[in-house]
């Protein structure tokens, strides 16, 4: 019973804050709504017996990535940015149509798949040790590649932010 109440609470919060992300006039409020949305998803992970992933979600997304977003937004004078949405032309109509079709497609697929009716289980969660064992045996190559990505990305970002105009310098 408690988990049903918790699920509906977290689901409502996640969706409402998600709407907030898309609708907010001010990017700063978008970012703050996104933090709440991510915390809600982390709560759902705890509900799904994945406490490690939930804690990492808060640590990485809410604690690091979103702080970065908020910092950048605060450093930029946001009030200057012009129109909020794509203008009311044919493109917007087609985009809305595309979103509608895609939503219908996803819902149909989700509702028709056999996994949907599977009831919640009551077994214990995976320990961090079990996660680590799979991560460092089966997925070790992917893990190493990820390490390379995380090494290359900061170098790229530093280069990007230090660049003085580059080829487009007028």
């Amino acid at each position: 019973m408690t988990d049903i109440i918790l699920f509906y609470f977290l689901a409502t919060m996640t969706v409402l804050t998600g709407v907030g992300v898309v609708m907010s006039e001010n990017p700063l409020f978008s970012a703050l709504y996104l933090v709440l949305s991510m915390t809600g998803v982390a709560g759902l992970f705890f509900l799904l017996q994945a406490p490690f992933v939930g804690a990492v979600q808060i640590l990485v997304y809410a604690g690091a990535v979103m702080v970065l977003f908020v910092l950048v937004i605060m450093l930029i004078d946001i009030n200057k940015s012009g129109e909020k949405y794509i203008g009311g032309n044919a493109a917007a109509l087609f985009k809305g149509l595309a979103i509608g079709i895609f939503s219908g497609l996803v819902s149909a697929v989700v509702l028709r798949s056999p996994i949907v009716a599977k009831p919640a289980l009551s077994n214990g969660s995976y320990t961090v040790l079990e996660i680590a064992k799979v991560l460092f045996t089966k997925y070790v190559l992917a893990f190493e590649l990820l390490g390379i990505i995380l090494l290359v990305i900061p170098i790229g970002v530093v280069a990007l932010s230090r660049i003085k105009g580059g080829t487009h310098e007028r």
Partner: peptide, 14 residues
């Protein structure tokens, strides 16, 4: 009863 469908629909909405 919570089923996989609940979570997947939420995921689709997001």
């Amino acid at each position: 009863v919570l089923t996989a469908g609940h979570y997947l629909i939420l995921s689709a909405i997001l």
